[in-house]
Simulated assay, not measured.
Amino acid sequence: MEENFDLVARTRANYYTPGSPVQFVCVELLKGDVSGEHAVCLTFKNISKVTLTALEIHFKCKGVDGVILCEDQFEYRDLEVKPGELFGQDDAVFVTAKAITSVDVSLCNVYNGKRVVHLDAIKRVRLPAPRRLPPELQKALEARMNRSELKYQPQVFENGWYCACGAFHPKEEDTVYCSECGCDRILLQNALNTLLQPEAPAKAEPAPAKPLHAAAAGEEPTRVVNSFRPAASIGEEPTRIVPAAHTAPEPQPQAAEEHTRVLDAETRTRFPGKAVHTEPDEGTRVMPAPARRAVPEPPQPVEEDEEDYEDERDGVAEALIRWVPPITAIICAAVALCGFVYYQFLL
């Protein structure tokens, strides 16, 4: 007997898998209108540049007080999901009569024909909660963008960006357009910055001109200058400085296991489900932050005593000064004597 399932609650995923061609978007909780059983549906999106043909996941459904109601592996086969398309929202992964409070999903393998990408060993990254906009600012932003359900503040992180509709787009998606509401990220941020700017201050009335004859007796008269720069008109509005938008904090990786909780409610249709049992996955290990190394103090310069050095006398120079004059005199006398004998006796 066919049965219609109505949407009871819907919530977005609060984590993603870095480097994955598939993004886990949201989880939906449905209830049968006849049997009253609860069904769980998961929605995924192809954020790669190729067509995907299959996906294998591992999920846990928990009830009240964190009791695990089901832990299984589910396979999406015979797919033809093009880039940017959503899938999985028409397949129930688990049906139970008990109340479900949270669902945990881990991506295992993604297929593109015969090519497969293994994601079991990649640690998921926890996403910060989107920031809600004040009701007045939300209505103004929706009117300016001509769209509805823009409840959150757009934020840009190192690994992706949040749209005002609450959708997260990882950097692997490489787009500035939201695939769910159609907003442009840059136009959306500019519109919000414009709404956050303070209003222009009221124009001040000009002060009355001071009469020339009212100058003080001892005041020096104003000199007339031929070349001058014209002053700004009285009604000219001063230039305003727009403050830069605050940068949102970067999301930190979450080592511990995170669960997506069911929060909102909308409308939905019926669908069948299937599941294949597998072994439970291993919990994520906590990687402690590295301790900061102590910075050694710079060595203090060593002061050395100045030593006075005495100049040593040059022994060679002293000997030359002492013996060169007498030797020169002897040589000159010998030369003169030889010349005298040569001219007296030999000539």
Rank of each mutant, 00 (worst) to 15 (best):
L79D: 00
A216R: 11
D33R: 14
E318Y: 00
H58W: 04
A294M: 08
A317G: 12
E3W: 02
P296N: 06
P206M: 00
Y342K: 08
A336C: 06
P238S: 00
A140N: 09
E257G: 10
P83S: 01
V302A: 09
D104M: 05
F345E: 02
G218Q: 12
P135D: 06
E173A: 13
L150A: 06
G66F: 01
A248L: 07
S48T: 12
G84F: 00
P206A: 00
C61V: 08
L133D: 03
D78L: 10
R144M: 09
L195H: 07
L188H: 13
L107H: 01
D33N: 15
I186P: 01
A164K: 07
H118Y: 12
R292G: 07
P280V: 00
P253D: 05
P211R: 01
V335H: 03
A217D: 08
V125L: 11
V295F: 04
T43F: 06
E312A: 14
A204K: 14
P21L: 14
G218E: 15
G113K: 08
G84T: 00
L195W: 05
E173D: 06
D281G: 11
E307Y: 11
L346K: 08
K139P: 04
I331W: 04
A140L: 13
K49I: 15
A333V: 10
K123A: 14
G84V: 00
G88R: 02
E142A: 06
T43H: 10
R77W: 03
A334T: 08
R77T: 10
H58T: 02
L346G: 02
A216M: 09
I57Y: 02
F74K: 07
L347P: 02
A245E: 11
A204W: 12
D78W: 10
I241S: 12
G235M: 06
P154K: 07
E71P: 13
C41K: 09
R126P: 04
I186K: 03
Y342G: 04
E2I: 13
D305Y: 13
V117S: 13
